[in-house]
Design a protein around this nucleic acid. Structure first.
Lengths: 116, 116
DNA sequence: CCCAGACATTGACAGTTGTCGATGTCTTGA
DNA sequence: TCAAGACATCGACAACTGTCAATGTCTGGG
């Protein structure tokens, strides 16, 4: 009898040791840049923030369109980018698609920039 | 008699409260995205990493061109973007331009993504 | 005064990105 | 079976980005 499993789609570590510890290899730099590109957009930052602040730490697309002020296709587009980057998860329940933060994903990004 | 001052060009705080605390305003999102766009490039991530790992925590352009494998104008271009974003500082001494990490700048970025 | 060298700036070009309207795909309820 | 609605995908377009070759600017040495 399988226990309900929550397999993270991506590793919790963003890619590499903290930036200031040792020179970044080309491959690690590429991977980290890909994650940061997903974050480096005002709409996507607000989406992450809105999802985190929502009840139950998840939100459906219909909750996000109006406060964000962008069209529905554009919101879906941004959400897809965040899911592909391993930052958000998507859970379709009935007609609605619920998006939630992937646990640890943001902490992994924070760890890369920590200098302590 | 003025003491030698080291005025940080940008505030140490990246822009705002941690992403997961409260929904991000449009203006804050724009500002944070600008900083992240500066970071979201493999060449620039490696430049930051190389500068941090270099002796004295600073490096001139000539130290960076060969290990990065890009042309000199391109390296100068990336360094300018990092300086404009408040992440690196530039200090021209004689013929050489020395780049160094702005203290606290990366920590401010890390703080935005910290979920503790 | 002029030359060499370190670095910045300019101009050009291909590739990527954010946005929207139109359309497609499912699911639910009647 | 059908219609409505939530969401995804597609196609198009303007704006932005990374890169290099060519050129400009400044500094130190002879």
């Amino acid at each position: 009898m399988p226990v309900t499993e929550l397999l993270p789609l991506t590793d919790v570590t963003a890619c590499c040791a903290p930036l200031t510890r040792e020179p970044l290899g080309a491959a690690d730099a590429e991977a980290l840049a890909k994650t940061l590109k997903a974050l480096a957009d005002p709409a996507r930052l607000r989406l992450i923030s809105m999802v985190a602040a929502h009840d139950g730490h998840e939100a459906c697309v219909c909750d996000l369109i109006e406060p964000l002020g962008l069209s529905q296709p554009t919101v879906s587009h941004h959400l897809k980018i965040l899911v592909d980057a391993g930052l958000l998860s998507r859970d379709k329940r009935g007609v609605w698609a619920y998006y939630a933060l992937v646990p640890g994903a943001l902490d992994a990004v924070a760890a890369v920039f920590a200098t302590v």
